[in-house]
């Protein structure tokens, strides 16, 4: 098995009760989980399942109330270590508007490396490279508020890329986007993982996105309730629906038709149905 990048051991995170009488509650309960180097992991869960809290635990924004989080052997138990961890694990948030700092695209991408104290000429190189990777190079001098949601989110991804972190956590990066923007962002994320070997942890509630992963981790009520390849997970529709989740249409169809192995994409579905009907395989 590949090297462990992020290790969570019996992690619990409790939001403290505040003065206004809101009771405290545990958002993450006794979770043990590893993220391996180079993998594309998807964390799936409906709203309030604790998946965003988990993301913030993974890059040391939150310190666990109980248990330990270690990134490449560095425990997230102090401010200093938190800073070291965030140099390894980058993060992209849901709302692109609230994570863009500068008024010009390239200045925003440069923000991360500037904070790391990288040499100016090297920053320039990294910024150009990162913008080309996400396909936003020609927009480098534009103002972020004039871009579409998908473009803004790709700028945010470039901002993390320029920091050259080994791992990127994306906390529902497509939740606020239209279908076109969603596809742009997902394709970008896949390319980062497949071509550049960056470890990707994608948090989402879109099943179509989960299908692309190497590993799916299902979250509900602050606990990790299932883990496996997309095929394994989506072969048990009843289980997912019980936990407030949907399953991709292709999987739904193949389950209804009683396929032994569920199909994940429409193309796969077509192939299987053709086979079932006794027709020749589509080539």
């Amino acid at each position: 098995m590949a090297e462990k990048l992020i290790e969570l051991k019996n992690v619990t995170y409790v939001y403290e009760a505040d003065e206004e009488g809101e009771p405290g509650y545990a958002a993450v309960k006794d979770v043990s989980l590893d993220i391996h180097k180079g993998e594309f992991a998807v964390i799936l869960g409906h709203n309030g399942s604790g998946k965003s809290t988990l993301a913030k635990l993974m890059n040391a924004i939150y310190e666990p109330s109980e248990g330990t989080v270690t990134v490449k052997g560095i425990p997230s138990d102090s401010e200093e270590n938190g800073d070291k961890i965030r140099r390894i694990v980058g993060m992209v948030f849901q709302n692109p508007d609230n994570q863009i700092v500068a008024t010009i695209v390239e200045d925003d991408v440069a923000f991360g490396p500037e904070n790391l104290g990288v040499e100016p000429s090297e920053i320039r190189r990294r910024v150009d490279e990162a913008l080309k990777t996400v396909g936003m190079y020609e927009h480098r001098e534009r103002e972020p508020h004039k871009l579409s949601g998908g473009q803004k989110q790709r700028v945010a991804i470039a901002g993390v890329l320029a920091m050259q972190t080994e791992c990127i956590i994306l906390d529902e990066p497509t939740a606020m986007l239209d279908p076109v923007g969603r596809e742009e962002v997902i394709n970008t994320i896949r390319r980062l993982n497949k071509e550049m070997g960056i470890t990707v942890v994608l948090i989402t509630h879109f099943m179509e996105e989960a299908v692309l992963a190497d590993r799916v981790i299902v979250f509900d009520g602050g606990r990790c309730i299932a883990e496996g390849t997309p095929r394994e997970i989506f072969s048990q529709p009843g289980f997912l629906i019980d936990h407030g989740l949907d399953i991709p249409q292709s999987a739904q169809l193949s389950n209804a038709l009683g396929f032994e192995e569920c199909a994940l994409t429409p193309e796969e579905c077509v192939d299987k149905i053709t086979e079932m009907m006794g027709g020749a395989k589509n080539d």
Partner: peptide, 26 residues
């Protein structure tokens, strides 16, 4: 709420204040 989220995002990008920062555009 925006300010709160922005602060998180800036922390994630290793912003710790002015010390030790460099600039892309000299």
């Amino acid at each position: 709420r925006r300010a709160y989220e922005l602060a998180f995002a800036m922390t994630c990008r290793c912003y710790t204040g002015g010390d030790g920062r460099t600039r892309m555009k000299q």
